[in-house]
């Protein structure tokens, strides 16, 4: 058999394999993508929370996208404490001013950044939150101070619709 002929045969087989592989990949994608959040989940509206009844120093927990969100009305002492912390003392340095638009209100996802448990309010060594699962301590700004969690608790997108209502998401 001549070399040219062998080459053409090789090319034909390579092309067939390549085109076949593209098809397999194209079929696999829908089977994978069907597990992603579907259109009705993605469309789920934002949550509006009336916070008029929250006393200073108290926190409420609301459900948003299936996760707890802590809304804490902080006292002047707690705000001062959060703002006095030196950046060098933080494993995940972040200013309190960047975390709370209105210093009185701290709105954050109540999910420990270690493995997803819900931390307890007013517990721990830093007057903030304490995660009972693996012992992570958060301060009054929800920042990680001690323990295995790698980052501060997450701040969701939110806005004040008026002075009483916070819209999360």
């Amino acid at each position: 058999m001549s070399e040219k002929k062998t080459e053409r045969r090789e090319f034909l087989f390579t092309a067939t394999y390549a085109v076949g592989a593209v098809g397999v990949a194209a079929v696999v994608w829908p089977m994978v993508d069907q597990m992603n959040p579907d259109a009705s989940v993605k469309a789920l509206a934002s949550t509006e929370v009336d916070v008029s009844s929250v006393e200073p120093g108290k926190a409420i927990t609301v459900l948003w996208r299936g996760k707890p969100v802590f809304i804490k009305r902080r006292t002047p002492e707690e705000i001062a404490e959060a703002r006095a912390v030196k950046m060098d003392d933080l494993p995940d340095p972040q200013k309190d001013e960047d975390r709370a638009k209105d210093p009185e209100w701290l709105v954050m996802l109540g999910v420990c950044t270690h493995l997803g448990c819900v931390p307890l309010n007013d517990k721990g060594d830093y007057n903030g939150w304490f995660c009972p699962c693996h012992g992570s301590h958060y301060d009054t700004s929800g920042r990680i101070r001690k323990g295995p969690a790698p980052t501060n608790m997450e701040i969701p997108k939110y806005e004040f619709v008026n002075s009483n209502i916070i819209k999360i998401g």
């Binding site: 829908p30 089977m31 993508d33 069907q34 992603n36 579907d38 259109a39 009705s40 989940v41």
Partner: peptide, 13 residues
């Protein structure tokens, strides 16, 4: 109907 409308590629599957 949820599969047919909302699930990604649900109608196809």
């Amino acid at each position: 109907e949820h599969i047919m409308r909302d699930v990604n590629y649900g109608w196809l599957i």
